[in-house]
Write a protein that binds this DNA or RNA. Structure first.
Lengths: 131, 131
DNA sequence: GTTCATGCAAAAAGTTTGCATGATT
DNA sequence: AATCATGCAAACTTTTTGCATGAAC
């Protein structure tokens, strides 16, 4: 059982108050600016812990991890812009089922999958076209 | 126009010879072990350049970037055993189309995707069960 | 001959870890 | 009282950058 500390709650709250994905460092700065004395290492540790607990969603971008409070516990994927990094959540039961089916078909158990779609978002497409 | 150096070609070749995604560091080690005197910084620079040129596909995982040669011909995916590493090639037009559709639906252009399924292969499942 | 890429080493940037202290159970 | 989380600083990993040299145009 995880211990209930004010730091853990602070991270939860700060994440919940943030729009979209936030980096651990940014979260730490926000907390410190808000008067908290929480340490950076603790923010990292809590984020890992919360991710493992399924309370937050993590995504890697530009060499750093970004976190967000997990609204639904439903598994989902991302549609990511190759240029500006914007990420849109996508979900598709069809893909989930296909992955599970393919695994079973080959005798694989405990299936997991990595599904991400990359592309140029509308804004970046426009910018590159007019240039 | 980018200059044509043997290093650029070496990175292209090494990437093409690799199955699946490879890290820059791994690629560099492979090249050095193969007798090349290429520098690590050059591998990073070439990978960035090739990515920008659309010749390679990048994906971030576990705090590092993984790269793969972007084949123009029909690509396939992998069903990989988490324990022994066995990889089975899989292909599914349904998934290809779904990815393209999802991208278009959100205004994304030049879609690309990463789809890999992990699990325990039949052999490893058996081994772990009897143990 | 000029320009640009390379290699090395040093620096950045992000994340993890060791350890003594203090909080939680 | 015993355990586990915290904060700090140092260690680590991956990636980037400055600069002199050498290669490509």
């Amino acid at each position: 059982m995880k211990r209930q500390t004010w730091q853990r709650e602070a991270v939860r709250t700060a994440l919940g108050a943030s729009e979209g994905f936030v980096s651990a460092q940014h979260l730490h700065s926000s907390l410190r600016e808000g008067g908290s004395s929480i340490g950076l290492a603790t923010v990292y540790r809590q984020l890992s812990s919360l991710e493992e607990a399924g309370e937050v969603d993590a995504l890697q971008q530009d060499g750093e991890s970004l976190y967000r409070a997990c609204s639904t516990d439903k598994h989902h994927h991302h549609l990511i812009c190759r240029r500006c990094g914007t990420a849109v959540e996508i979900s598709a039961d069809a893909v989930e089922q296909w992955a599970a089916g393919v695994a079973a078909e080959h005798g694989f158990t405990q299936p997991n999958h990595v599904v991400d779609v990359f592309g140029l978002c509308a804004a970046c497409t426009a910018e590159l076209t007019e240039a």
